[in-house]
Design a protein around this nucleic acid. Sequence first.
DNA 1: AAGTCGACCAACCGCCTTCGA
DNA 2: TTCGAAGGCGGTTGGTCGACT
Length: 257
Amino acid sequence: MGRAPCCEKMGLKKGPWTPEEDQILIDYINLYGHGNWRALPKQAGLLRCGKSCRLRWTNYLRPDIKRGNFTREEEDTIINLHETLGNRWSAIAARLPGRTDNEIKNVWHTHLKKRLKPNHGSNDNNRQAKAKAKVMTTAHTPGSPPESSSEVSTVTTSENNGNMCATKIETHEDHVSEIDENFWSEVLSADNSSMAGDFQVVGSDPQLHHQYFPSSPLPKLEAVNEYGPNIYDSDTNMDFWYNLFARVGDLSELPEI
DNA sequence: AAGTCGACCAACCGCCTTCGA
DNA sequence: TTCGAAGGCGGTTGGTCGACT
């Protein structure tokens, strides 16, 4: 048996709040606080359900709410936090003073998600469009023999936080890994470097790599863009792998960076 | 000028968690 | 320990507005 919606009672108003209702709610909370949301509307004389009052207060009327457009820094923070926290909007909001989970959720769906998608025409998207959804794990450690076919390791995921399609990473004899295109655009947007072009994996962070590809050689990230090859420093490389495994594996199992 | 479409965002819905009796 | 009430959270909806045809 499901619980009846809280606003199902006859006579309770729904829809946009009027300035008068806002003022009543503000005045009441300023005077008495909001100890009991269910009881609040009746005591304040509002024809609203408690849930609606709570939402209106936390998302709009709270005095510490910062209105206006998100700054680039805030957007980057959201993107970075979303990388690690997923769609836990309230957790992300807790790291952004003055911003609500609802607001962040809206910004994500209307702005930031697009920024991470390829083929949208912006500089970012042009950049992302250049990136091929392909990684080549070319690198055995110099002098080491190629891995045998029995040492193929595979990581698969059909969905991670509902954001991506099937992802499959395999290290085969031909050292080619096919990865979903959205994944790469997300990885590209997640870091602030000017990555573009094809990616080549030519070495690796031992700790991360061994955890997920225990039997294959250690790759390192190299981006090939219009300015030529660019091998990343160890931090960037680690960030890359962190982002990668955050999508294909269980984040909680990742080691601390 | 009117109609259509898409972006934006406030608000709702339903599920899950927490807490107290 | 159980159960119901209340709060919290994330997904979704629907109204509004501006751009475009």
